[in-house]
Design a protein around this nucleic acid. Structure first.
Lengths: 209, 209, 209, 209
DNA sequence: GCCTAAGCGAGACGGTACGTCTAGTCTTGGT
DNA sequence: ACCAAGACTAGACGTACCGTCTCGCTTAGGC
């Protein structure tokens, strides 16, 4: 999560304050809400957290890594309750994800750190570990549940299944992000319904709605 | 494109140097390639273009607007030749778009300006006008061509058609961007084939590949 | 005085603000009075002068050089009016110099920059040019005047005279500084009288007072 | 020398390490040689001494007091062997003192702590006790010896004698320091001879050399 | 062929944030 | 009570950019 010099935690010296850890992450989210990514400053975060700037830099190398850690936890809120059909499950997770992207701390931060990550391999890895891979579980769970229900065939080899999971993930997440942040149009029930229809039956099915 | 004080263009005074215009945009793209979005500075661009900083600010209000203009023209390269089937057309445009996102000047700049735009309405409008809406023509053309070919039904009301165009746009563009920049996996032929199968026939069809 | 990139002053670009120059030097002296050398900060000086920190650094490389320039002008106040005898002239300049060293902006700054100069050759040169050599004129004038009065012989070779001037300078300035700042005893009329007696007639003469 | 909480030395608890005391003072002198006053840091001294920063602060209230103690001992090297005449004694002590001021640990530290002391009364007192007053013994001894030799009259009242001692001290020490550190000229045999001639016989005598 | 308004390169300006450094204090566990 | 280690607050450092503002000079229309 944040850098520790000693592998198994040093035994000597004053230990890091865990209160500072949480105060900093909360302050970061608050600053994101108020200021957005580009106006967020380390000094401001330190001030909000009641902490010296050095305490931030002792834990995170730079703004990007701090923000990734601060935002990552929000993505753990996403859940996939069994609503009885794949269609309903998809619509539900799409709306949940859209609600998350509506929040000011995520909408500005997510794109910004992804943008930075195109030039910063360690940051990309951190994003993948903290955010991206953690959400793939939703696709996995949904697909397996649909197979159990018989909504999807399950005789395919493992590699095909993995490729399909990746595809679904990129399509759903990408479509929602693009709709919400690039097109800047609402991700609402009808749109979610059209998207899930497209996924289940292709363009023809989507057009029929 | 860039701000002109007088509505119909002032008749008096020294006219703006068009050489400066193009030199600045080229310098901006070069700086994006070398430095990426976050390390690009106005002073550096001015230096590369052999131009004073004032000359930049006379034309663009800030870094974001300059970068949008510098990058926008690249998106006009996208074309949609008739390859005989909707499937082929989709795969072709997906690969074209992916190639564009591979270029360092686009990959870092696109996400960054979108991130900024979440807090900057004029910037969002500029992005929409310069980049987003310009690419919707591809969806429009592809969908109409498919209808002419009989691959898609065409009796739907206009509003439904528009909503479908928007959906396709968000799904295709979103999926490619997400795959390329977030998942950081290659957008290659097989993946494009799977995506187009999904669009045409839904998950079942995609799984069959 | 302060660094100028172009030798005879660049013709191009916005010229340096001379108001800023004087405001900064005045602010520096005010800060020295209030805070002393070690608590004086560049940011504070900038704030007092109503100027950005960069404007300070554009003119002076560091705190030391700024302080030397700010304090140097104070030393130009020293004068050597003809009081009729070498003894009176010496006592007068000693008391003047002591009054200067009483001022808080000089007393703390002078020793501090001299201390720094032991590790910084350019600074030593600046001190010599701005402060030290400028005061040697007093010794020169006083010695010549005494020779005209016949209080001192004048048939010596030039090199001997120069060595004597240097000696007098180090003895008088050194004694006053040491008395005022190291011994921290008052430099008053009686002490000045004893010192001048010593200079004129040696220990025996000083003891006789 | 350094602070002890209990007046007669506490009986309870672990006693302070005397090895640490000497290691710290040696490390301080070494750091002064390498870095000079302004770049010397407490952390660096602690590191060199193989000691925790806390251990420094347990003994000295701050950097200045530590440096005064570290340097003070060097001044105890000064001696006043009987060379047979006042003139020879003066020249000898002048050259000794100059040699001391040549050493990097003294030249930078002495002026720096004096500068600090202009704003710090306890520090001034510590300097006086540790350094200044300790050297006055040389003046006292030299003057008494000269009186015994008959080189100086000895019928003066005590107050006059004390004032003369102070004057000699300020003149000699001040002149050497000023020559060495401000004028930055060598304090060599000829200069020492001129200075002692001045002291013994005044300007006329000094000019005659 | 002048006049004049705007553009131009250069670079100083006020501001703001950066990431680093140091001072001096505090908190661990261990001697 | 001491010690080593190292985290802590506070705040200055010097640098880098931003976007604005003079400067003196250039350039092309309109007169």
């Amino acid at each position: 999560m944040c850098k520790r010099t000693n592998p198994r935690g040093s035994r000597t010296g004053r230990p890091r304050s865990t209160e500072a850890d949480t105060a900093i992450l909360e302050a970061t989210r608050a600053a994101l809400v108020e200021l957005g990514w580009s106006k967020l400053t380390m000094g401001d975060v330190a001030g909000r957290a009641g902490v010296a700037k050095t305490t931030l830099y002792r834990r995170w190398a730079n703004k990007n890594e701090l923000v990734v850690d601060a935002v990552a936890v929000l993505f753990d809120e996403l859940e996939l309750p069994d609503l009885g059909s794949l269609q309903a499950d998809i619509e539900h997770v799409v709306l949940q994800f859209a609600a998350l992207l509506e929040r000011p701390e995520t909408k500005t931060a997510l794109m910004a750190v992804v943008a930075e990550s195109t030039r910063d391999e360690p940051l990309r890895e951190r994003i993948r570990a903290s955010i991206v891979d953690r959400q793939k579980r939703l696709v996995l769970a949904g697909r397996e549940r649909a197979q159990r229900r018989g909504e999807l065939p399950d005789e395919h080899p493992v590699s095909t299944v993995a490729a399909l999971d990746d595809l679904i993930f990129d399509v759903v997440a990408g479509a929602v992000v693009h709709r919400a942040l690039v097109s800047a149009e609402p991700v609402d029930g009808p749109w979610a319904a059209r998207l899930s229809a497209l996924l289940l039956g292709g363009l023809g099915a989507a057009a029929a709605r």
